[in-house]
């Protein structure tokens, strides 16, 4: 196997195992499933909608992830810095990118696992009627991309500080701004003040780009948006780590 891939995977394996050696993973998975259930059925009123779709499920994801994803990612680099293991990691014969990507992939895989565990919802809509599986699949893909974008942002904020709480608060704030940029009350306000800027502002919102996925449309521009947020944030992480060692 290519050394690049091998090293990235070794880092990812260690990181992923780290979630499960502490109660963090189990607490997170249970809370995630409880909250998605609560929002989908109690607030989203999935049964009263009289339609076999997962709209009531996916529509909450930008808000749910706002707190849950930073809680998964906040320790990624903060903890390495606080424990001093950053020094160990950076003097092992690996590149900085292998470490960054490895750690990111591990956390992303963990979030993907949480998402996979929501599959009973798919069985539910299958039982209720004949759902549009295109929309279900694209909804899941969009949700995973959304989680990845939030996670990459958290990865970056965690490289800024050795304090996990600061890392959490910073990433929640950045993600919130990215939600609000496409939230109707905000876009209406922008329209009132400077109509020409509306499109510019909403282009930065995760809401705008997640919408298509929910409807079953995988637009390459939406995909590209999330992919560039991830790339950009990981690149920022790399710069930050480099500056720590300068």
């Amino acid at each position: 196997m290519n050394r690049n891939v091998a090293n990235t995977m070794i880092i990812a394996k260690r990181e992923l195992a780290g979630y499960f050696t502490s109660p963090v993973a189990y607490v997170f998975l249970i809370i995630f499933l409880l909250l998605t259930g609560l929002f989908t059925f109690m607030i989203g009123r999935m049964f009263e909608r009289n339609e076999a779709s997962l709209d009531a499920f996916f529509m909450w994801h930008p808000w749910l992830y706002l707190f849950l994803v930073p809680s998964v990612g906040m320790r990624l680099w903060s903890e390495e810095r606080r424990q001093g293991t950053l020094e160990l990691l950076m003097t092992l014969p690996i590149t900085q990118w292998q470490a960054i990507v490895g750690k990111f992939i591990a956390s992303w895989a963990f979030l993907a696992l949480a998402l996979v565990l929501t599959c009973p919802l798919v069985f539910t809509v299958e039982y209720l009627g004949s759902p549009d599986y295109g929309a279900v699949v694209s909804g899941y893909i969009g949700s995973l991309m959304l989680a990845g974008a939030y996670l990459a942002i958290t990865c970056f904020t965690s490289s800024l500080t050795r304090n996990q709480v600061i890392s959490f608060v910073l990433s929640v704030t950045i993600c919130l701004i990215m939600i609000l940029a496409g939230w109707p009350p905000v876009t209406d306000f922008v329209r009132g003040v400077a109509p020409s800027l509306v499109e510019f502002v909403t282009a930065f919102s995760v809401m705008t780009h997640f919408e298509g996925f929910q409807k079953g449309v995988i637009d390459s521009r939406d995909f590209l948006f999330f992919a560039s947020v991830i790339t950009f944030s990981l690149f920022g992480t790399s710069l930050m780590l480099r500056s720590l060692r300068a």
Binding site: S22, G84, L88, T91, L92
Partner: peptide, 17 residues
């Protein structure tokens, strides 16, 4: 780096492993 074995100050390691 592959030729070096390094023990940093304060001997850091991953506490949950």
């Amino acid at each position: 780096k592959s030729l070096i074995g390094y023990l940093p100050e304060n001997a850091p390691s991953y506490p949950d492993m």
